[in-house]
C-alpha cells in the first residue's frame, strides 16, 4: 500500500448546501500535501470526514487503508490530529498532558523527545494557562505527534504566529516529514504551502480545481515571465517567454547594474486567486465550523 489517503466521489451536503461535491484525491505515503481553498470551500468538511469525525453522504474513503466511518480504535493509533485549538488544558502542565496522552498509544514517542522537538522543554512543568499562543500551538502539535502517527492532520497550524515562530514551526514540520510522516496540511497561507508541501490541491465549491506541485500549479512554470527595471524615473515592464535574453539585452544597454532589476513569474498567490475567483462571489456560505 502506497496510498495514505484515497478519496473517490466524496459528497457531503448540509441541507441544500453541497459542501463537498464529488471529490477525488490521492495522497501518497510520505508526502506533505497541502489543501488550499477559501472559507466554505469544503476543506474542513473533507478533513473531518478523513479524521472520522463527520459522516459522508456518498463516495469512497480510505485513510491508511481503512474507512474512517466506524473505524476501529486501533486505527487512531496510526493517525495524529492537530486540532485548531485544544482547550481545557489550562490546569495541567505540558508534561502531564503529554504523558497521559502518550499512554493511549501502542508505541508512543518519548515525552521528553517530543517536548524537545516542539521547543517546550523549558515550559514542560509550567501550567498551560501561562504559555504564549505560539507555545500552546506547539503543544497542540506535540499532542498530535506523541503517538508516533504515520499520518498527521494539521489544520491551519500557524494562524496567529509571528514570522520567526512560523519559520521555527516549518522546521518542525519538515523534520517530521523527513522522518517519513505523511502530512495533510490545510492552510490559508500560500507561502506556507509553498514552503512545506510536495503537492498542493486547491478546492472551492466542494470540488478539486487544481492539483500539482507548488511550483507548477496552474501551469505557473509555462507562464511568461515579467522582466522589470527602472529607467528615467519610471518602472518598465516586459512580458516575455525568454527572460534570460531580455536581461542580456538590458545588461548590454546599461553601463553597470540594471537599476531595480527583477524577473518574476506569477506567484502561487496570483495563480491561486485566479483559480478560486469564480467561486468566491456569493457562494461563500459558511459550513458549520
Amino acid at each position: 500500500m502506497s496510498t495514505a489517503i484515497r478519496l473517490r466521489g466524496l459528497t457531503k451536503s448540509y441541507g441544500e448546501h453541497r459542501a463537498v461535491a464529488g471529490l477525488d484525491l490521492d495522497v501518497e505515503l510520505g508526502e506533505v500535501f497541502a489543501l488550499l481553498g477559501p472559507n466554505g470551500a469544503g476543506k474542513t468538511t473533507t478533513v473531518e470526514i478523513l479524521e472520522g469525525f463527520r459522516d459522508r453522504d456518498g463516495g469512497e474513503v480510505a485513510v491508511l487503508g481503512t474507512d474512517p466511518h466506524g473505524a476501529p480504535l486501533h486505527w487512531r493509533d496510526r493517525i495524529g490530529i492537530v486540532l485548531q485549538s485544544s482547550g481545557g488544558l489550562d490546569l495541567l502542565t505540558p508534561r502531564e498532558i503529554l504523558r497521559s496522552t502518550a499512554r493511549c498509544y501502542r508505541a508512543p514517542r518519548d515525552v521528553d523527545e517530543v517536548l524537545d522537538a516542539t521547543g517546550l522543554t523549558e515550559k514542560a512543568d509550567d501550567r498551560v494557562v501561562g504559555l504564549s499562543g505560539g507555545q500552546r500551538r506547539r503543544l497542540d502539535v506535540a499532542l498530535g505527534i506523541v503517538g508516533r502517527p504515520e499520518l498527521l492532520f494539521l489544520d491551519e497550524p500557524t494562524t496567529g504566529f509571528d514570522p520567526q515562530a512560523r519559520r521555527d514551526f516549518w522546521g518542525l514540520i519538515r523534520s517530521l516529514a523527513h522522518d517519513g510522516t505523511t502530512i495533510l496540511l490545510t492552510t490559508h497561507y500560500l507561502d506556507e504551502a509553498e514552503q512545506l508541501a510536495d503537492r498542493v490541491g486547491v478546492i472551492a465549491g466542494g470540488r478539486l480545481l487544481a492539483l500539482d506541485t507548488p511550483a507548477d500549479l496552474g501551469g505557473r512554470q509555462q507562464e511568461e515571465a515579467t522582466v522589470s527595471w527602472e529607467e528615467e524615473g519610471t518602472r518598465r515592464r516586459v512580458r516575455t517567454a525568454e527572460p534570460t535574453a531580455e536581461v542580456a539585452r538590458l545588461a548590454a544597454r546599461f553601463p553597470g547594474e540594471v537599476p531595480e532589476l527583477t524577473v518574476s513569474r506569477p506567484s502561487l498567490e496570483d495563480v491561486y486567486l485566479e483559480l478560486i475567483a469564480p467561486h468566491v462571489t456569493d457562494e461563500t456560505t459558511e459550513v458549520p465550523a
Binding site: 469525525f53 480504535l73 485544544s86 481545557g88 488544558l89
Partner: peptide, 21 residues
Amino acid sequence: ATERDDGSLKRLRSTPMPPVA
C-alpha cells in the same frame, strides 16, 4: 459541558483511548 465546548472531548476522541476510560 465545559469539556465538550472547549474541545477536550474531541481531543480525547482523536486518540485511541477507549471511551470507557
